[in-house]
Design a protein around this nucleic acid. Structure first.
Lengths: 351, 351
DNA sequence: CTGAAAGCGCTTACAG
DNA sequence: CTGAAAGCGCTTACAG
């Protein structure tokens, strides 16, 4: 704090709050200009080592940390990144936060948590307000917001760098981090087929999530590659929610015939189907194999444990932040590996 | 942007990025001083209605939004609040984020997500760095960080307002939002007793979480109020994790005798116990009733569905933010109601 | 290698 | 009811 303020405080006999030291305090103590302090704090060249050391000492003894807001206002970086999300799966969002923060923190950046409602009529206004209020250094977008034209064009108009996680629409429009969901679904389906299943049902995910489509593609491909026919009656709509899984389950089991295996586009829907199966006394996996996608925490709670695909969410988030901090202008596309996890909800089918 | 900059851009023929309008632009367009614009934007009194309207028009037509960083630097508020957490339950953290943001947004505040490791040796440095880097307007602390002396004293030294969620140590040290966990545990235990259970086991939560102790207190109270004896062999340690539930389960079922009901201090541990019970072919609820605490998403996935206590996490988070924005200096203690949820993991005990 | 000056976009404290 | 001046704590652009 300035000398004047110190004096005033002393005169008034106020309990001295431990006011933050500023660049002026450090400069004064080290006997240099604030520009030199700035150079040292930013690890810029052209400072004599002795001077550098003196400034470092002064900063340390005053417990000085540059004020992020002042740096932002004067400089070209805000050290703030926002994570935009509208995803109902807590474990996914949790891992996204942790992964992004893990990378940002290493570079002194901070993360703004910005949950949004994709269907809000004023989404456009909301995103523009955010952008114009805080000069963000970057934005990370998760499905389904990563495919929101309103958001993408607002970010581009404001020239804010952004990285998309698992985008579906126009993937090369921006840098992105993703895993091969189609291939994952292909492998999962192939696994079921190898187990002797031919009559395999499928439950779609939320139509606004790109993953829904990629997963169906993988399923479709595996079925045709193996010369198997997809029964349209066994392909159900879904919303990625537990409730839509319940509904799909009821629909599946209302018919006289049913598939010997079901591929649900995510775990929550698989849980719903399993609940209905249990109610109707359909034994899993003996009478019905079932698989999901995501490896949600519940997949080892439910019985039998759910075979599923594990997404490396934490890594995906970390890498998305990495790309954002790169500052290189070229667009990047980083693919991360998935993992097929075989548990007890699947078993060989005997004809 | 300033006229000079506009000119330069025009001269160079640059593609004009939609640079943010500033207070100067609005003042110029409206024909008033920037101070008047400031008054209007902050809804301060002493502006003629006509002037006010003129400024509003100008701001609207320029798409002007005050720069948060500049407001922070010049003023006394940063419009930034941080949520500090080190809690492994994704659904809890997810709901905390959503609840806090829901309230903050109404007042134009933003939320920094700051996951921390309570056991980090440099937790002290981390928190001090955060505090000195960004002048936070407030902090919200969740268990177990809400009981971290290192964090609390750092916040107090920096005179940063904070609200604690469900604190255990020295609850009146700050404003807080909580539910009556003891009473919830009391009611849950009483419910089991009413069902005819007398031999009731208990699994402690993580010792660093205050909730663990309060929940045991409620259990203890209910047992003694009903003249029932607590068998020390049936009180197991736990860590709030699924794994510690598995361990508790193994320990319970290794003995010749076991309780007819078990109260696990949270759902994840209950899930672990249920897994072991299933493996050992112990029928729930016929041979063993079990209850948890939290109403985690898995509690309706597992079979049978888990009877548990629902915490109003979203509301708690919302109210914590509300108190933070209040700015009144008095400490507040807000209690929110819980809900006892009876599902199929419990049944009457017949002697 | 170092510094003086100007400025980032606002609010504060004061004057009229 | 309104505004001119100073300043928040830094960085930028420039000079030496």
């Amino acid at each position: 704090m300035s000398d004047d303020h110190k004096k005033i405080r002393a005169e008034q006999g106020l309990i001295s709050a431990p006011v933050q030291a500023t660049i002026n305090d450090v400069a004064g103590l080290a006997g240099v200009s604030i520009k030199t302090v700035s150079r040292v704090m930013n690890n810029e060249p052209n400072v004599r080592e002795e001077t550098r050391e003196r400034v470092r000492c002064a900063a340390l003894s005053l417990n000085y940390t540059p004020n992020l807001l002042a740096r932002s206002l004067a400089g070209s970086r805000s050290f703030m990144v926002a994570l935009l999300y509208d995803n109902p799966v807590p474990s996914y969002i949790f891992a996204m936060h942790n992964g992004v923060v893990a990378r940002l923190r290493r570079s002194g950046y901070h993360l703004l948590a910005e949950p949004l409602d994709e269907n809000a009529p004023d989404l456009d206004k909301q995103i523009k307000l955010l952008i114009s209020t805080i000069p963000l250094d970057g934005v990370i977008l998760t499905p389904p917001l990563c495919d929101s034209e309103v958001i993408l064009s607002a970010l581009e108009a404001a020239q804010i760098p952004y990285v998309r996680v698992s985008p579906f629409v126009n993937p090369d429009r921006s840098s992105r981090v993703f895993m091969d969901e189609k291939s994952a679904a292909f492998q999962m389906t192939s696994y079921l087929i190898e187990q002797g299943h031919k009559d395999i049902g499928f439950v779609h995910g939320h139509p606004k999530h790109g993953g829904s489509h990629r997963r169906y593609e993988g399923f479709y491909q595996a079925m045709s590659d193996h010369g198997l026919v997809i029964n349209p009656d066994w392909v159900k709509p879904g919303q990625f929610s537990y409730e839509s899984g319940l509904e799909a389950g009821r629909s599946f089991f209302a018919s006289a015939t049913r598939p010997s295996a079901i591929f649900a586009s995510n775990d929550y829907m698989a849980f719903g189907i399993m609940t209905i199966a249990q109610q109707m006394d359909i034994k899993i996996p003996d009478e019905l194999s079932i698989v999901g996608f995501d490896d949600a925490p519940g997949s080892i709670l439910i019985w039998p444990h759910l075979s599923t695909i594990r997404q490396p969410v934490h890594d995906i988030a970390y890498q998305a932040a990495e790309i954002l901090l790169d500052k290189s202008l070229e667009k990047k596309a980083l693919e991360l590996p998935f993992e097929l996890i075989k548990r007890s909800s699947t078993s060989p089918h005997h004809h």
